[in-house]
């Protein structure tokens, strides 16, 4: 288990609990002490996780043990067949795309994949997609449209990859194309930010009828580090930047950008991936139902209307 700095108090209590349990196993009478400590751990956890700062949430969203798309496929899908082709340049392992069944319903799934081991993270480019990733995603979405299958999109990326090849092959063009085509896709789309919602690289697969965020996920136009280095020329002020940018699920709900927050277990998704996936699956199915019975033209009309309404400005005349 990897613990974050702000989780220190819980770790210390847990260590105490371990040694008490050891005492108990050796015949010591510490039953009451254990009970007391367990309560204390619960209280402390509740207190810490319900008062997280924006920056602490960023750390949880980036937690190396956080469930990724491949985990959710295993935990939520009864069948899955991956489709690797962008039909153009190469398979981009930073995005997984394919068809599968969730609760016996055929759907198309696309999602960022960061990879778990160091080797796999390199292979997946840490979940930072190149243009071919966005093109593969769109190709599979169009497949969903052709055969009337809804699209589920899981978003978890630091951003689209900024590299020479990415520019040469049209990173901006690939994302722009996805934004327009997703707006007009004639099947339901549900997008869930499951970890990092890193700017255009996230949005490139996140135009949807229903946009959800997991409790500790964040979604931002720029990374807190990037913002801090622009504003204060100091990447160490990321915590302040995270707060100023208003990037938490609650912030986005208030700003009218997302529709709902999907709860996570105390401590974050990685503490209990099974429970997290169960909640997510239930939410997806619940959101999918009314969309599946909506005529495609109405679906598209509402989606376009939803995104066209985004933004906050003032009026000068009353």
């Amino acid at each position: 288990m990897i613990w974050l700095d702000f989780e220190r108090p819980i770790v210390e209590l847990r260590e105490k609990l371990e040694s008490l349990r050891l005492t108990a196993s050796e015949g010591g009478n510490v039953k009451e002490d254990i009970k007391k400590l367990e309560d204390e751990i619960n209280t402390s956890s509740q207190k810490i996780y319900s008062n997280l700062t924006s920056w602490q949430r960023v750390q949880l969203a980036r937690h190396p043990n956080r469930p990724y798309t491949s985990d959710y496929i295993k935990l939520m899908f009864s069948e899955f067949f991956e489709l690797h082709g962008d039909g153009c340049f190469r398979d981009d392992p930073a995005i997984i795309a394919g068809m599968g069944k969730i609760d016996n319903k055929p759907v198309v799934l696309i999602g960022h994949e960061k990879g778990r081991s160091t080797k796999e993270r390199m292979y997946r480019n840490f979940g930072m997609a190149n243009p071919e990733g966005y093109r593969k995603a769109m190709r599979v979405m169009k497949l969903g449209e052709k055969f009337k299958r809804p699209v589920i999109s899981l978003i978890d990326t630091a951003g689209a990859y900024p590299g020479i090849g990415a520019e040469e092959r049209g990173q901006a063009q690939a994302i722009a194309y996805n934004l327009r085509e997703m707006s007009a896709l004639k099947v339901p789309i549900i997008a869930i930010v499951t970890g990092e919602g890193g700017s255009g690289g996230a949005l490139g697969i996140a135009v949807a009828d229903v946009v959800l965020m997991q409790e500790y996920a964040f979604y931002s136009v720029i990374s807190p580090e990037g913002c801090a280095s622009i504003l204060w020329r100091d990447a160490n002020k990321s915590a302040e930047a995270a707060k100023a940018l208003r990037i938490t699920a609650k912030d986005l709900l208030e700003l009218g950008v997302i529709d709902e927050i999907v709860p996570e277990p105390t401590g974050g998704a990685h503490c209990n991936p099974e429970e997290t996936a169960k909640t997510l699956k239930r939410t997806i199915l619940e959101k999918l139902e009314p969309l599946l019975s909506t005529p495609p033209e109405i679906l598209v009309k509402n989606r376009v209307k939803k995104f066209k309404a985004m933004g906050i400005y003032a009026h000068s005349k009353v």
Binding site: S183, V221, F307
Partner: peptide
Amino acid sequence: EGILSLMQMAK
């Protein structure tokens, strides 16, 4: 304007 600026791309 944070995330609202990002959403202008989709809009």
